[in-house]
């Protein structure tokens, strides 16, 4: 704010994030609905960050954090503290598909590292990197808790199971064909899960029969 008036040698305060209001009318309604579930407005911080992650295109910019803080009456630092604590909030852009390979205990002994190496080779990136065309980001994640179906790879709101170094390239092909931008789709699904009645208007649920037959995508 007053950075230029402080003169040379003065400690410059951290520049305030740009003011931006990107929440759509629909998003504001969703936020108000969710906030009414709790006795305190602040409790809607996690869902509000999910809304922001969707509205700001899959990751949280400083402006997104500022907007959440403004809408919930919290400080920027408080919301930033929350946003940086949880691993599913993206603070940097992700590829159109974020491949999150579980390499925790069971997956590790069932060949998850082979899957990671195969992906690194096929995509030409290291863990943590994004392909040049912005299609894929590769990450290693801690337990996704579907250990019976190791190796598990999460992409957006979907779990891919029984992934091996041999079949992982099919997965890549399938994702390349899809039109979706999965980080945004994930954020949208999570927002909708908070809203009563949203199961009637669609959502990602499969039929009971599909689940019974263990048709895992």
């Amino acid at each position: 704010m007053a950075t230029t008036e402080n003169g040379p040698g003065a400690l410059e305060p951290r520049p305030a994030p740009p003011k931006e209001q990107r929440f759509s009318l629909n998003a504001i309604q969703e936020l108000e609905e969710i906030a009414s579930h709790y006795p305190e407005r602040k409790a809607a911080c996690l869902p509000a960050l999910w809304i922001a992650q969707r509205e700001y295109g899959g990751y949280l910019t400083p402006a997104a954090i500022q907007e959440v803080a403004d809408r919930l009456g919290m400080s920027y630092a408080e919301v930033e503290g929350v946003a940086t604590f949880y691993t599913m909030y993206n603070l940097r852009p992700r590829g159109r598909h974020h491949l999150e390979v579980c390499t925790c205990l069971t997956c590790a002994v069932m060949g998850a590292y082979d899957v990671v190496h195969e992906l690194e080779r096929a995509l030409g990136i290291e863990v943590g990197g994004t392909t040049r065309d912005g299609e894929f980001t590769l990450s290693e994640v801690e337990c996704l808790d579907y250990c019976g179906a190791a190796t598990v790879v999460q992409v957006g709101d979907r779990y891919f199971t029984h992934v091996t170094a041999d079949n992982v390239l099919n997965l890549i092909e399938e994702l390349r064909q899809s039109e979706e931008y999965t980080p945004v789709k994930l954020a949208d699904a999570i927002v909708k899960l908070h809203l009563p009645g949203s199961s009637q208007t669609g959502g990602g649920s499969r039929t009971g029969e599909q689940i019974r037959n263990n048709e895992l995508y």
Partner: peptide
């Protein structure tokens, strides 16, 4: 309180809550 990764199980819970209402 459902972990963020469990979108698919959470959808079933969402549906169950809506039906129970």
């Amino acid at each position: 309180y459902i972990r963020g990764e469990y979108v698919e199980p959470a959808w079933q819970v969402r549906k169950a809550i809506d039906q129970a209402y």
